[in-house]
Every structure is written in C-alpha cells, then in structure tokens.
C-alpha cells in the first residue's frame, strides 16, 4: 500500500466515523424507549400516533402536489425556452437560482406580508388559501432542482426534430408535451421529483410560519416534548431521504443502461 493510499483510507475512515456515529446514535436512541431492552417501542408509539398519521399523510400529499405543480410549471417552460425563446434562458436561469440565494425564511416572510388578511389576495386568511400558499412556496423551493434536471434532460434529446415529427403527424402542443416530450425526459423529471420530495417532506420553516401543522412542525413539537420518539422520527426521515436518493440513482442508472443499448 502506498503512502497516498494510507492517507486516503485514513481520511475516509475518520469521515466515516463522523458520518456514521450520528446515524448509529439516532438509531440506538430510538430503540431505548423500554428500559433495559432494545425494542421498536418508540416506532410503535409514533406510528400509532394519530397526529403522526395525519401530519405525515398531509406532508406526503403536499409533496406530491408540489411535484405535479413543479412539473406543470417547469416542463413547458424549459421546453418552449429551448425551442422558441433561447433569449429567455438567462432570465429563467436567474429566476430558478434565486431560491438558493434568498433564504426560505425571507421568502415566507414576504408571503406573510403580501398575502395577509388585509391584502388584495388574503390567502393566509383561509384554510384553502394557506395550503395553496404553502404549496406554491414549496414549488418555489423545488424550482432550482426541478428546472436543472428537466433542462439537462431536454439537452440530451433533439426536441426540435421530435416536435416537428410530432407536428407532421398532426399532434397539437399539449399532446406533444404530454406524449412526446415528457416521456423522453421522464427520468430527469423523476430525479427532480424525488429531490423535491426529500426536501418538502420534513420542511419546517414555511409550515411553521404559515401555521400549518405538517410533518416538520410535528417533529419539532415532538422534539420539545418527548425523549425517544424524535429519534424514531429522525430514522424515518433519514430512510425517506435515503430512499429518494437511491431511487434517483436507480433511475439514472437504468436510463443510462437503456440508452447504451439503444
């Protein structure tokens, strides 16, 4: 083994220790609810908690809706910008980068000021309005990831030829987008979607400041009031993040495989 390899192993080992210990710690803690024995008691308690079921179900539904909204917003835009308005590219890229530049807490602060009960569009005043605002906020958060993955996907296919081919067969715009373009960038859309899911599912700041009782605020509430359940929740959240990233990897690998065989 060369000296360089030795140092590399050392760096990776130390890194591994730092990254694995919190995972082990969180898992270990989540198993200690019953004195003296390892058990899944904390998980049972959490899963049986109607609050958990309700907030988690809500967050999952919201995440799915965010993904749909994101796709509806980003796919046609990215498509038309590539096909018809290449001049708009810098503007779109700037806008989609903004959510990374402006801290989320600032964006939600702006919502509260603009859409409060005394404004023209009093979204925060009603249940529906608040949900729509939260949905839109999450769609904003997901813009950088969604746009970038869809745009990367579009770059790999010849959308001009595909569009002309579909047009010559008599397809309209909606049909072209839904039947021709979307399936061809499906894998890219999916990786953006999973990333969005991972971000939205445990999001706290937006939900808390808009007073929505979703999974994020529920976790914080648990953290303040219980000992072992938060660790169980953290394990669940980690598993979800892991699953999302794993699925992205799986789909991109699958797509590489299929293009290689084509």
């Amino acid at each position: 083994m060369t000296g360089r390899q030795l140092w590399s192993w050392l760096a990776v080992a130390l890194g591994g220790l730092y990254f694995l210990l919190p995972l082990v710690g969180m898992f270990d803690f989540s198993m200690r609810m019953q004195r003296g024995v390892y058990s899944f008691q904390a998980y049972r308690v959490v899963l049986a908690d109607p609050q958990f079921q309700q907030t988690f179900g809500y967050s999952v539904a919201l995440a799915l809706l965010t993904i749909i909204l994101g796709i509806l917003l980003v796919v046609p835009t990215a498509y038309f910008v590539r096909l018809r308005f290449p001049g708009l590219r810098p503007a779109i890229e700037f806008i989609t980068l903004l959510p990374l530049v402006i801290p989320p807490i600032v964006i939600v602060f702006g919502y509260i000021r603009i859409y409060n009960t005394s404004s023209v569009l009093p979204l925060t005043g009603s249940w529906w309005g608040t949900n729509i605002l939260l949905l839109c906020g999450y769609a904003v958060l997901s813009l950088p990831y969604m746009y970038r993955s869809v745009d990367t996907g579009l770059r790999t296919i010849d959308i001009a030829s595909l569009t002309e081919a579909a047009q010559s067969l008599g397809a309209g715009w909606a049909r072209i987008l839904a039947v021709v373009i979307l399936p061809n960038v499906f894998v890219s859309v999916l990786s953006g979607a999973f990333l969005t899911f991972a971000i939205v599912i445990g999001e706290y700041v937006f939900a808390a400041l808009l007073n929505v009782n979703s999974f994020g605020p529920y976790m914080v509430w648990m953290g303040g009031n219980r000992a072992y359940e938060p660790s169980a929740l953290a394990v669940v959240a980690f598993a979800i993040t892991w699953a999302c990233m794993g699925l992205i990897q799986l789909f991109t690998r699958f797509s590489k495989f299929s293009t290689a065989r084509r």
Binding site: P22, G25, M26, L195, V220, G223, P230, S231, F238, T241
Partner: peptide, 27 residues
C-alpha cells in the same frame, strides 16, 4: 451516494440525530 443523502439530510431530523448522539444522554 451517501453524500447525496447526507447533504439533503438537513433540518429537524438532523438535529434529533445529533441530540441522540451528543446530547446529555447521547450515544
């Protein structure tokens, strides 16, 4: 792959993991 996961494992659950690890009764 792990970096992809860990860089997105921020927010509330991460805090819980560290409390469970380095808290007063942490691992």
């Amino acid at each position: 792959t792990f970096s992809g996961v860990a860089s997105n494992f921020a927010g509330v659950p991460l805090a819980f993991a560290f409390i469970a690890t380095l808290g007063r009764l942490g691992f």
